[in-house]
């Protein structure tokens, strides 16, 4: 399959390489825009991202609180007291579990939808639009809407009561085991439209002749899909898994609106824990926790992205 083989190589990398080589030469007058055009963007990035991150590092080593005006350095005290406390590890475990569940569900839903709605029919276009609406919704609104639906006297139980003909009053958000899973599913529901869009784009870029060639070689539609088209989606998988995993590690709004960390703190992800600590006026301790979260996201991001990138190399 000479034609197929050609498309399967990654032309992008080849095209990128010469561009990189050219870079030193473009520093002269032939640039289209002067470098200082970057200044406003960098100024904003500096003030709203680099400075807070820097302060995050500094305040974590102080005793900053709402109780007094002076801020004194305390060394590693905040870290040692945090590490000796089981609550932090509990929150970390819940955060990781939540992130993994969100990544799983969001990609399952998004992938399923993308495959279902791949053909450009009028109905499919309308359906894609509808599934994209949750992405545009406010996360807090999503949390509150589902909280109202899942209450013991909420609409879901009303519906079940009407269908079964008997009073149903399940406390959907009352289980200390399953509420986290439900929260992850709701988070995934909100963002599945985005994953769908990226998978759709991935599916659209696969040239038809590749699948056609597979059919000619006698592959069944099932084989053609899982052995030819699915591997070619690897870059979309990388992006979707990485954004879902890392985005949900920083999650707060949906869970806060849905459960506020309950029941019995079984859904208290790290950001809710940080929020609670900050609210008590223990600013330095909250900052230390957010530094821990930052480090954890960074530590997790590199191996995950490398692993997913490795998958792409087979292309």
């Amino acid at each position: 399959m000479p034609t197929g083989q050609e498309t399967l190589t990654r032309p992008a990398t080849e095209r990128r390489a010469p561009a990189r080589r050219k870079t030193p030469a473009t520093t002269g007058r032939d640039r289209t825009h002067p470098m200082w055009f970057l200044a406003p963007a960098f100024a904003i990035l500096f003030v709203f991202f680099f400075l807070p991150t820097l302060f995050n590092f500094i305040y974590a080593f102080t005793d900053w609180s709402s109780f007094k005006s002076d801020i004194r350095p305390v060394g590693l005290e905040n870290f040692t007291s945090l590490l000796s406390d089981g609550t932090l590890f509990g929150a970390l475990r819940i955060t990781l579990l939540y992130a993994a569940l969100v990544a799983l569900f969001q990609n399952l839903f998004g992938f399923g939808l993308a495959v279902l709605l791949e053909k450009d029919t009028r109905l499919n276009r309308a359906a894609r639009l509808i599934f994209l609406i949750p992405v545009l919704m406010s996360a807090l609104a999503v949390g509150y809407v589902f909280q109202a639906l899942l209450k013991p006297d909420g609409s879901l139980n009303d519906l079940l009561s009407a269908l079964t003909g008997q009073q149903v009053s399940i406390a959907w958000l009352g289980s200390t085991t399953w509420t986290l899973v439900l929260a992850a599913i709701i988070h995934a529901w909100k963002w599945m439209g985005l994953s769908m869009l990226i998978y759709l784009a991935g599916l659209k870029t696969i040239p038809e002749d590749v699948t056609e060639a597979a059919h000619i070689d006698g592959a069944s539609p099932w084989q053609a899909f899982w052995s030819i088209r699915f591997p070619l989606l690897a870059p979309a998988v990388t992006f979707n898994v990485a954004t879902a995993l890392l985005g949900s590690m920083n999650g707060f709004d949906i869970v806060q609106a849905l459960t506020g960390g309950g029941p019995a703190r079984s859904t208290e992800i790290l950001n809710i824990f940080i929020y609670r600590t900050f609210g008590q006026g223990l600013f330095a301790q909250a900052t230390t926790m957010s530094l821990v979260l930052f480090l954890m996201v960074a530590l997790l991001a590199f191996p995950v992205i490398r692993l997913l990138r490795k998958r792409e190399e087979i292309l």
Partner: peptide
């Protein structure tokens, strides 16, 4: 809800109290 014993309630409360009292 059954996830803490009375002893754990007292311990967790004391720990947080000490942390806040120290900050104050």
């Amino acid at each position: 809800t059954g996830s803490l014993t009375p002893e754990q309630v007292a311990a967790a409360t004391q720990k947080q109290f000490a942390q806040l009292a120290k900050a104050a």
